[in-house]
């Protein structure tokens, strides 16, 4: 690994199309050509009305589904080159899911719920339990290890789900309406947790929401409508950044030119 090369972006999508064939030969295009790039460590909200294709986009990014056409690279790997088994391994390693309805196994303790992704990675049981315990402690549930989902509040359940998403050290957390089933206090708690994980842990967070308040807390918003990216706050920033870097570059060149003239030092 060459140290100089920057880490590949977490997600890189080029002209992603996803269409579903319906009965009678009709096709529905859920995504009609989405191009975007999400870097490591970003905090992104994908926003859009229902039916806009944001869930489809989320499923594609999460490798739960495959695009009809277009290229999707996850951590630099083109997913079309992976078979179902490799794709499952990629999900297991690189992506942590948080769902609106938590999706915890009902009759299983918080600890075993959190340890589940490690089962499919073949991690031995003692190590699994230790890591699950650490993940639960990280989300402030160190005192709830043996509790079942039915014995916990919605906020606690979602934190268990976040611990489960984190336990495998993924590069990205994909959260689908993570606060959708929570009251505002618990929603706030969960959002705070996601922000903290993003800042402290360096995990990229991509959340899908139609709650403007939640979306506003992300550093970048991608608005999806009718299967297309309607607006991306990063695009504006990128434009500014490009302008700035162009400016810097020109300055640097000038500096270099002057320095070279002065003492021959390339710096």
């Amino acid at each position: 690994m060459t140290a100089a090369r920057p880490a590949p972006p977490a997600f890189e999508a080029v002209d992603l199309v996803r269409s579903y064939p319906l009965d009678g030969g009709v096709r529905v295009d859920a995504l009609r050509g989405v191009t975007l790039c999400i870097d490591q460590g970003e905090f992104v909200a994908i926003v859009g009305p229902s039916g806009s294709g944001k869930s489809t986009l989320m499923h594609l990014l999460g490798c739960l589904d495959r695009p009809t056409s277009g290229v999707l690279r996850v951590g630099g790997v083109d997913v079309s080159t992976l078979d179902d088994t490799r794709l499952a391994e990629l999900r297991n390693r690189a992506i942590g899911f948080v769902f609106q309805s938590f999706h915890l196994l009902a009759r299983t303790s918080a600890l075993d719920n959190v340890a589940l992704p490690l089962v499919y990675r073949g991690v031995p049981r003692p190590e699994r339990r230790a890591r699950a315990r650490a993940a639960l402690e990280a989300v402030g549930l160190g005192h709830r290890l043996g509790h079942r989902p039915s014995q916990m509040s919605g906020g606690e359940q979602q934190r268990v789900a976040i611990a489960r998403a984190l336990v495998g050290d993924p590069e990205v957390l994909l959260a689908d309406e993570p606060t959708g089933n929570l009251d505002s206090r618990n929603g706030e708690e969960v959002m705070g947790l996601l922000e903290r994980l993003n800042v402290d842990g360096g995990v990229a967070v991509v959340l899908v929401t139609h709650d403007q308040g939640v979306a506003a807390r992300a550093r970048r918003q991608i608005h999806v409508r009718d299967g297309l990216v309607e607006f991306d706050t990063a695009a504006a920033r990128t434009a500014r950044r490009n302008m700035r870097s162009e400016w810097n570059e020109r300055n640097e060149q000038n500096e270099r030119h002057r320095g070279n003239q002065r003492d021959g030092d390339p710096r």
Binding site: G62, N92, L105
Partner: peptide, 16 residues
């Protein structure tokens, strides 16, 4: 079915 979907999302392979 939902549990199976979840397990797959978490990285369960078909053979698992």
């Amino acid at each position: 079915t939902k549990e199976i979907g979840l397990r797959k999302a978490l990285g369960a392979r078909q053979r698992d």
